[in-house]
Nucleic acid binder design. Structure first.
Lengths: 208, 208
DNA sequence: CGGTTCCTTGACCAGTTTCAATGCCCGTGG
DNA sequence: CCACGGGCATTGAAACTGGTCAAGGAACCG
């Protein structure tokens, strides 16, 4: 993954609900998440909240900072997080490999967000949650954090609601339904997917 | 806007519903839209459609192609479109200015999509449509295409529905309501916004 | 003109939200 | 060791937003 020397300056950690970066801050570094989960989100005046990005172990947190721009959205830890600070070099000191890597991370963010726009715009509760759980499972497996058909899933139902654009109550009911249909097993922050293709079908993820 | 020499190779045009790029195609160029509107979208198996990006005059269409990747989503003309093909240079032949420009376009796409995730995830019909119309008006004014409080708005109600994640019928009813509240005047593909701050308020766009 | 495409309207229905209350789990402190 | 408190999950009932189906009308184009 990290196929070039982004010299990790130092290790940092964060507790749940602690900010990695606040809104409009000028970040000095990008983070590579070593362990734990974080998200970026936007808050409306009346308190409605939407999570617009999820950061899992092994992933780069906010490549767009590398342009030296202000963070448009805060990033907060969802669990305990251990991360590497990677100092941002001046643009003209970057190697071609570094540029390519940052570019790739940014285009991946565009793709993920486009998928997610479809999910929020056009899918119902079951399809949204199924999509999210498939996504999580895939990303966890990509860095070797799945065990058999299982992986960690530390998000609360409120987190799930803020990701899927639903209410926590409806997330709860939908999860119940998925459990009783045998689509998932989810308990004590641990997810098991007995039949991944079935879950992907439920998420309308055939092309994906 | 186009502050460096992206030598426009040639001019092309497209009729409504004509594809600028098909899915999984390897684009040879990025486009700069000179006139007309286009969008990128994703189609679900059962026909549900979600527009994930809108391209207005003066805007760069799909900077991520510059990485030489396949188009993850098709791009189609919504009106008659006149555009400049800008051939994609090999990565290592690009000037720093070119790189900076492409990076800026890509981070702008990430920001727009994040805003749109909030809208699709957390806003109701009125707020969604108000947001969209504000966005359109802002972008049109940015390239001098607004006249007083007016600008072109060639999208059909079905297009609006596919952007906002609603049904055409509900878009229609919501527009009626906005008209009778005096929030907008919209007829024969022409939009007038009597009170932009009021519309922004209706869209919950205070921070924005 | 004739045929599309787009807009409009009505009646009914379904998925999701809201409000409110209860219970569970777990860490902390007496 | 047990009581307390806070965060999280669960459940029910009622209300509402937006979706579906269906039909009619207006505008536009060759």
């Amino acid at each position: 993954m990290l196929d070039f020397a982004l010299a990790p300056e130092d290790r940092v950690h964060f507790r749940p609900h602690q900010y990695l970066v606040r809104e409009a801050e000028l970040p000095q570094a990008v983070f590579r998440i070593e362990e734990g989960w974080a998200c970026r989100f936007r808050l409306m005046n009346d308190g409605r909240r939407q999570i617009t990005g999820l950061f899992l172990p092994g992933e780069l947190c906010e490549p767009q900072w590398a342009a030296g721009q202000r963070a448009a959205q805060p990033v907060v830890a969802l669990t305990n997080v251990r991360a590497s600070r990677i100092d941002i070099m001046a643009r003209n000191e970057r190697s071609p490999e570094q540029r390519r890597y940052l570019w790739k991370a940014l285009t991946a963010a565009v793709e993920w967000q486009a998928d997610w726009l479809v999910t929020l715009g056009r899918k119902n509760a079951l399809e949204r949650i199924a999509h999210l759980l498939c996504d999580i499972y895939d990303r966890m497996s990509r860095c070797g954090l799945t065990y058999g058909q299982q992986c960690a899933m530390p998000l609360t139902q409120m987190d799930l609601a803020d990701l899927t654009g639903l209410t926590p109550v409806h997330v709860n009911r939908t999860l119940q339904g998925m459990r009783s249909d045998g689509l998932i097993e989810l308990q004590s922050r641990w997810l098991r997917i007995p039949d991944l293709p079935a879950l992907r079908r439920a998420a309308c993820l055939m092309t994906n």
